[in-house]
Write a protein that binds this DNA or RNA. Sequence first.
DNA 1: GCGTGTGAAATGCTTCACAGCG
DNA 2: CGCTGTGAAGCATTTCACACGC
Lengths: 211, 211
Amino acid sequence: MQIPVSVVERIGQYRRILQDLKRDGTGTVCSHHLAERAGVTAAQVRRDMMVLKSTCGTRHGYPIDCLLNRIAGMLDNPTGENVAIAGTGNLGRALLAYFSMSGPRLRVAVAFDTDPDKIGRVFNGCRCHGPDDMARVMAEQGIRTVMLAVPARSAQAVAERLVECGATGILNFAPVPLRLPAHVFVEQIDMTLALEKVAFFSRRTSREERT
Amino acid sequence: MQIPVSVVERIGQYRRILQDLKRDGTGTVCSHHLAERAGVTAAQVRRDMMVLKSTCGTRHGYPIDCLLNRIAGMLDNPTGENVAIAGTGNLGRALLAYFSMSGPRLRVAVAFDTDPDKIGRVFNGCRCHGPDDMARVMAEQGIRTVMLAVPARSAQAVAERLVECGATGILNFAPVPLRLPAHVFVEQIDMTLALEKVAFFSRRTSREERT
DNA sequence: GCGTGTGAAATGCTTCACAGCG
DNA sequence: CGCTGTGAAGCATTTCACACGC
């Protein structure tokens, strides 16, 4: 069965909201409430629950613990998961700092860089390896998912190398579309394009306001 | 007329590819070529061109200069555009560094922070102001678009403040969905969720590989 | 009632397929 | 002929609306 990307996105989002609610001591949520917090419709929430094979909703809504369990069962690797980051420039190190304090589910276990000054150093508790060690380290740590934070000109080549070394998912921060085999899942985070997009629509709504 | 978000995204992407081609001395592209580089279908490219009211395609494809002009006419504010960033923690400063070298179309003109130690300082050529100056500075600089890089717990409140001060577009890096008036365009960049998503699908395709 | 779970309708985006033109 | 521009078909996702259970 094929789960749509948009559903996975929202389910991750629901999880965070549910964790917040749980921390506040809430025991159940109804679809309307969860929808309100997530900024979607209640029907959407219930639809999304269907992919969890939920049927744990009662007349007072969903028990939060039950939902969290099912979400974890779907999204998480039971044994935890190591990911890598390629590129330890400004952006790469910022990402390392950002993710170093994130939960225990996903751990940024290693970094890769080609710069000899970087190789062997440790950033935020994460050791940086050279390209020659890539295949070995990725195999040893069971890494399938990599964040790509290298300069645009080398992104395609590094991505291909990563795939050769076993990567099947890439979170690409470089501002170039990657051409990779179909079995590799690529998610693009292009901050420059995102900012241009927001500027465009923000200008557009300002214009509407004026009329 | 309502332009879909996805079209604006792709047009920004096309622009970058066209600029690369131009730099290489190419004069025209056909839809197939552009599609290949962007990782979409040729039909998609031609469809997207329709929102540019293009009709500048000839039998040998589109003249690149013509396309670039029309894209600029659609996406860019003719007088350039100032944007702001709220939050100058690790992430905020990394974003400032990242955008400080970007093109002249969008300029990160000011930063905001509540920390008295930060107010008055200059990061990457960008002065940091306190909350009291927000309304004045945003009006002076004509800022409608803001990047939000504050901690999750204060994101909603800061966003509301920004909207009061005239923001109509927010690029939100905080891991919470914002509830704002409908006229405000919000784009969410949630790196943790993005990484979880990639990990999920990457695990999924690994499983398929095994079969 | 009140809220879930889900067929069925509606919407919106993408792809097809082909007329038209240089 | 090859490539654009576009109506029409095809898909995917979202929303509606209502049966069912507590």
